[in-house]
Design a protein around this nucleic acid. Structure first.
Lengths: 146, 146
DNA sequence: TTCTTTGCAAAGCTTTTGCATCTCG
DNA sequence: CGAGATGCAAAAGCTTTGCAAAGAA
């Protein structure tokens, strides 16, 4: 899936340089290991590219994109929020506590159980956050080598 | 389970007034619907009790208690962290988006699946956070009545 | 006494907001 | 041209830290 100017326009957002740059950043990131970016990471990367954007604009654009459904926001255990390109399919996360690597997964069993639990408590489920924290294989091997 | 002065001492923490007050607050809260308190809520409640503590002390004590395993910290979707009396048994949460009510649950199936998923990705699982968000029955009825 | 703890004030971070200026359409 | 977007600076939370005074053991 590739987003461009027309997608912004159809969302009622003008196709400005900051917005296009930020969208491009996330599309590039989606192809790498590091799909998740914080506001400050976006800001820094834009600055490195020589782009003259303000941090406030980054925050505003990220929020707009999230509302528009283009990006998804996460909090994980950290202080600052991170965003990833919002694909239609929901997924949960597995984070390495040592290197920060993030894997994504979906498990239909867990999804189903969640629905059952919500019903049992009389809740209508809106959404959920599930994040597993551990140490990845590479980090374990690195640790063992020392 | 009831904590007191001796528990603080065995943790290497002196039994001071602020610490005992805060511990008592959480023990009282554990008996109610509202087991989860933010630093500011703790601070306000202490102030209401006429206790002259500083907010910084509240933060320091909460952190010490968390490290000691007396309290457990959560972030949920909000900006500020909340704490609850840390029972030995792990549990996950179900939060009402409208009234803020928090239910707790444990599901062995989900726990097991999480282990399996972590293994599949080569991770050694350390911990996880699972939080379901929805609307509780009471709120739905309240909404329907309007 | 001695080491810990506290309260206050100040500082740190992340995020938001006010406002004059600029720009897309 | 005109509504919307931007950058900067200031402000607004939440949380941490420095430090002198107070307190526990």
């Amino acid at each position: 899936m590739k987003y461009d100017q027309s997608d912004l326009k159809s969302l009622g957002l003008k196709a400005t340089a900051p917005r296009l740059r930020i969208l491009a950043l996330f599309q590039k990131a989606a192809l790498t290991e590091k799909r998740h970016l914080t506001a400050d990471e976006v800001f820094s990367q834009l600055r490195e590219e020589g782009e003259d954007v303000g941090l406030a604009t980054v925050y505003r654009v990220l929020t707009q994109f999230e509302v528009a459904g283009l990006l998804r926001r996460h909090h994980f255990d950290t202080e600052s929020a991170s965003y990833e390109l919002g694909e239609p399919e929901h997924h949960d996360h597995l984070v390495c506590l040592q290197c920060g690597k993030i894997e994504e997964f979906v498990d239909v069993d867990i999804e189903r159980r969640q629905q059952e639990i919500a019903s049992r408590f009389g809740f209508t489920l809106d959404h959920h956050t599930l994040c597993l924290y551990g140490i990845c294989k590479e980090c374990r091997e690195k640790n063992a080598a020392k």
